[in-house]
Simulated assay, not measured.
Amino acid sequence: MDKKSYTFIEIKQKLVNYCVYQDRCHAEVEQKMREFTLIPEAKEEILLYLLQENYLNEERFVRSYIRGKFYIKHWGRNKIRINLKQKQISEKLINACFDEIDEDDYFKTISKIFEDYYSKQSGLKEYQKKSKAIKYLMGKGFEYEIILQIMES
């Protein structure tokens, strides 16, 4: 397929729209830029513009990502961390933004997921139901220690 050629201004506008539609991280914007034929200087200029005009804000991206993945998808911190690292987000920034998740909400969510999942297991021995539930919660990215705490309470 032939790449339609756009002017610098059009490409810049497309990238602004891309960032306005939803928060993006640097890696996503750089990936998007690869769709266009741009010299390194032009890429730099667009990236700088997006940052200066606050269309691209890595901390805002991380915060909204964490909120969405936890409050909507019910992912645990481990899964969120792994996915953010794949987007080349620094450990420091990830840790600084985890305060987006309320501790109480975190525990309540794990409890609810545990109870829902556990109650659906039938025809299994107690320990089998528990170990399946632990595996399920760990798969969603919740920490083993916290899962155990919740199961004991």
Rank of each mutant, 00 (worst) to 15 (best):
K32C: 05
A42V: 02
G68F: 13
A27P: 03
V16K: 00
C97S: 05
S131A: 15
F36Y: 14
F36I: 06
R77H: 11
L15A: 13
I150G: 02
V29Y: 04
Y118F: 10
L50E: 06
Y136G: 11
N17W: 07
G123N: 09
I9D: 15
E41A: 10
V62K: 00
R81N: 01
E152L: 14
E35Q: 10
D105S: 08
I66S: 03
K73H: 11
K14S: 14
G68A: 07
K73G: 03
E30Q: 13
Y65C: 03
K130T: 13
D104I: 01
L137V: 05
R34Y: 10
E45A: 10
D2Y: 10
F107W: 10
L84W: 02
L124E: 13
I147Q: 02
E58D: 06
F98V: 04
Q149P: 02
N17A: 06
K12W: 00
Q88E: 12
K43F: 03
A133M: 10
Q128A: 15
Q128P: 03
Y18A: 12
E10L: 14
Y6M: 11
E44S: 12
S119R: 12
D105E: 15
V20T: 07
N54D: 09
D104P: 00
K12M: 09
I146W: 02
Y18E: 11
F8W: 08
Y144I: 10
F142T: 01
K32R: 15
F61E: 04
L148M: 09
I146A: 02
R63L: 11
L15T: 05
L15H: 04
S122A: 07
K135C: 10
I113M: 07
I11R: 00
Y117D: 04
E145P: 02
A133Q: 11
Q88I: 07
T7A: 06
Y55F: 15
G141F: 05
N83A: 08
I46Y: 05
L15E: 07
V29L: 15
I9P: 09
L15W: 11
K85V: 03
Q86I: 01
G139N: 09
Q149C: 06
E41D: 14
I101E: 00
N54A: 09
Q31P: 02
L148Q: 06
M1E: 11
I150K: 02
Y136F: 15
K129M: 14
L50I: 14
F114M: 15
I80L: 14
Y21R: 11
Y49G: 13
Y117L: 04
I110L: 01
D23L: 07
E145A: 07
S122V: 01
D105K: 09
S64W: 07
L51I: 11
F8N: 08
Q149I: 11
K140A: 01
E10H: 13
C97N: 00
K43I: 08
V16T: 00
Q128L: 14
Q13C: 08
S64V: 06
